[in-house]
Design a protein around this nucleic acid. Sequence first.
DNA 1: TAAGCAATTTACTCGTCAGTATATAAATGA
DNA 2: TCATTTATATACTGACGAGTAAATTGCTTA
Lengths: 215, 215
Amino acid sequence: MPRIAPIPTTSDAPSPFRTRAEKIRDREEKREAVLRAAVRMFNARGFHATSLDDVAASLGISKPTIYHYLGNKEQVLIECVTRGLEPLRQAAEAAKDEPGTGLDRLRRFLRHYAQINMEDFGRCVVRTGDEFLSQEGTLQFRARKREIDMALRGLIADGIADGSIAPVDVKLAAFTLSGALNWPARWHDPAGAMPVEDIAASMVDIITGGLALRP
Amino acid sequence: MPRIAPIPTTSDAPSPFRTRAEKIRDREEKREAVLRAAVRMFNARGFHATSLDDVAASLGISKPTIYHYLGNKEQVLIECVTRGLEPLRQAAEAAKDEPGTGLDRLRRFLRHYAQINMEDFGRCVVRTGDEFLSQEGTLQFRARKREIDMALRGLIADGIADGSIAPVDVKLAAFTLSGALNWPARWHDPAGAMPVEDIAASMVDIITGGLALRP
DNA sequence: TAAGCAATTTACTCGTCAGTATATAAATGA
DNA sequence: TCATTTATATACTGACGAGTAAATTGCTTA
């Protein structure tokens, strides 16, 4: 460690000289900026219809800069879906250890799920088909999604076991629920009037409560 | 009419000389064959990842032949989604004049809807985002889909009016239902064991009946 | 029989875009 | 002070793929 600890600067006068840690953070920030710009364009125009030249231009940089931070176009997409999948994974994990009946926990998880699917990276997950990735990428992607699907099925099974959920086909129910809550990735307009939380809550009410009027 | 009526041939010995009507039908058949080959590849690999050379090769013909029957690549896609939308439109129209409560009619329609979305052209409708079409194409496509969405909303509203459906937000409910039933276009495997009718029926039960166990 | 039309091919053009080679300038460190 | 690393740019290559030009063959019709 040949480096002397820097004298702490007053926090309101940021030095133009960056420490090693700061530079690592700078780099991260730039990476993230590239990913956010990319995911927005992927969502708006589709992966194949978006060139990395476009993405670079939208940030006022050049294409090789993107290649400097992220190896290639597929890598950009993979990082985007990873960022979309991560909060889903966390929500799924959290749902396991929560109190309440299976139905209660399922409903909480589904509201999370719906909201994440209306955010930039979540939308990208839904819109990314296997067509876009290499064989290896597809395998990883599917494995990650499967993890979440399995958690969802687990919650449904729990609910059936404790009597809070009707005895349905678990796999089919999981597909049906996720389909309903994935679809906003296609139609939801972030500029819309209705808050995301409300949309999520209403959709979950519809699919768990059912449309038929209860006597 | 300078043409003499042909002597009727025995039906088990088809003549190699085609009449005018036969030639028109031949042409139609070839068009359809191109569209069917194209839609399969679009569904399997995505629109952008499918070249018309690929489609032609899969039929043992050359690319200009496709251009002979269909003006350009967008036209191919438009014809595919048209063929997917048409049965949906018919089902929506038929649902209006059927007997039963709003809920009954809705459920019947939804089962149709789900099944169509598991067929080649129906899947293509679901998987075709606005990204793929020109401005004009997008407008037409959206208008057609809107027609079906409106029919769906109408059925839900009818059910609410006659008391068979709970008083939900109609627009959101329509999006939720269609989302759930669109999703099989992504995951359903036509070679799967479970018959399409059964999948459709189960999914419709889940979304109309709701997951929560009824006391 | 000649003109025209329908169906189909081979062999192109042209644009786009992922990815790369190379240069440069600044900061870091020996 | 000199070598190395980091960040960035300009300018290229190479592939792919939509769409077209032009030739061919055979049938239809004046």
